[in-house]
Simulated assay, not measured.
Amino acid sequence: MGRPSPQTDRLLDLVDLMVERPDEGLALAEIARALNVAKATVHPMVTTLTRRGWLLRHPERHTYRLGPALVAAGRAAARGHVVVDAARPVVREIVDETGLPCLVLVAGAIPGEYDDLLVGEIVQPSARHAREWAAGRPGTGYHCLRLGDRIPPRPPLGAVCVAWSDDPGAVGRWLDRLGEDRPPDALEQIAPGLASVRERGWALEVENRLHERLKTLARELGEDRRSEKHAATLHGMLGEIVRAFDLADTLPPTVEPGARYRPTSVNAPVFDASGAVTVALCMICSSGAPGDPAWSGTDVIELGERVRAAADAVTAATHGRPPESRRL
């Protein structure tokens, strides 16, 4: 892996800052303050970016905002991945049918960090279709993501990428992303779920939100000196939860039509010519709010088959092929 380049990081941080605040003109001092660097460090960067058309400088206010050269760069980037390009119309169709947002996640796009996923496309439902879905189905939403965002696939996210991997260490590295939450028998717990992903061709992911909320609460209590005893007690409870936590619950090995589920997403893989996962279609099923209603197993299966069919269509359109295990 190459050596880090702080100057390059600062330049990209500057562009990211302008992308996050597209409707605001930022003065040099505001940019420097947001990046936590000196104005003298920022000045040559904004000068060069302005000269190249990546930024525009207001002649009177002396503020900067995104420039027209980025429009051409964005259009070129949008056409830069054949599979993402082929996925757009297919994903748009399933999003319009279901009223659910969909992420097109690119696998292996980051050199040296092949386990991470990149957001290649975000397709949102129209307001009309979203209302139609919400009238008889669970509400939906998704966290604030942008094109190009990098997502570390913490289990169960990423199951569709590792289920078919020929690398014996891939599942282990994926489970290592659980950190201290990884159960001692994590591989044994998750193996049936991964086998079912290979058999069905799609993954149902269910997040353990209670565990995450308790961790957040313990951290907040720990920051408050008055609550140190409460934090210690809660950390002890968390230890018990981790020991009792069944990782298999986040990647159910079976989906029963009559059962109820609280899915965060339903995913299916797109394969390249070698049979490796190159893109994952990720249908977002939850708003992330505690009150999200449960889904019936029938609805989950219906969505899973739709997403699998969409992913298979993209695989075929881009001359990919399923791995041997899918063709048996």
Rank of each mutant, 00 (worst) to 15 (best):
A76T: 09
V37C: 15
R92Y: 03
D299P: 03
E324A: 15
E240Q: 11
S5K: 11
C144S: 14
D224V: 02
E205R: 13
G193L: 11
H211F: 03
R177M: 15
G201I: 05
H235T: 06
E223M: 01
D96G: 12
A127T: 09
L105N: 07
G193R: 13
R65T: 13
I190P: 11
L14S: 02
I151Y: 10
P89N: 02
G172A: 13
P322W: 05
S325L: 15
T41R: 12
T264E: 13
S296F: 03
P293M: 05
V242K: 11
R198D: 08
P153V: 08
R213P: 03
A77E: 02
R213F: 09
G304L: 01
E60K: 05
E20T: 10
V160N: 10
R209Q: 12
A294H: 14
P290L: 09
G2R: 12
E20D: 15
P293W: 04
F271P: 02
R327E: 14
E30A: 15
D23G: 15
D299S: 15
G74A: 02
S5T: 10
L217W: 01
A310P: 07
P125Y: 01
P101A: 02
D176T: 05
R209H: 12
L145S: 07
G179V: 03
R146M: 11
S274E: 15
G2L: 13
E113W: 07
L234D: 00
A38P: 03
L217K: 08
G291W: 10
S286V: 03
A69S: 09
I284H: 13
E97R: 13
V255P: 11
I190E: 11
R3E: 01
G112L: 01
W54F: 14
T216K: 05
A244L: 10
P59T: 07
S227T: 03
R225Q: 04
R219I: 02
E199T: 10
A86M: 09
R260A: 14
G99I: 02
V83G: 00
L28G: 03
R308A: 12
A130E: 14
V162W: 01
W174F: 09
K215A: 10
G236W: 00
Q7M: 11
H58N: 14
L14K: 04
G74Y: 00
G158V: 06
T216D: 07
L26S: 04
G288L: 06
A309W: 00
D249W: 06
A218G: 01
L204F: 07
G25Q: 04
A273L: 08
R225H: 01
A316S: 12
A27I: 02
F245A: 10
L11N: 05
A163V: 00
A191M: 00
L55I: 08
R10P: 08
H230K: 03
T315N: 05
R177H: 09
L175A: 04
V83H: 05
V314G: 09
T48L: 15
R219Q: 04
W174N: 12
G136A: 10
E240V: 11
A77F: 00
G236N: 09
V314S: 09
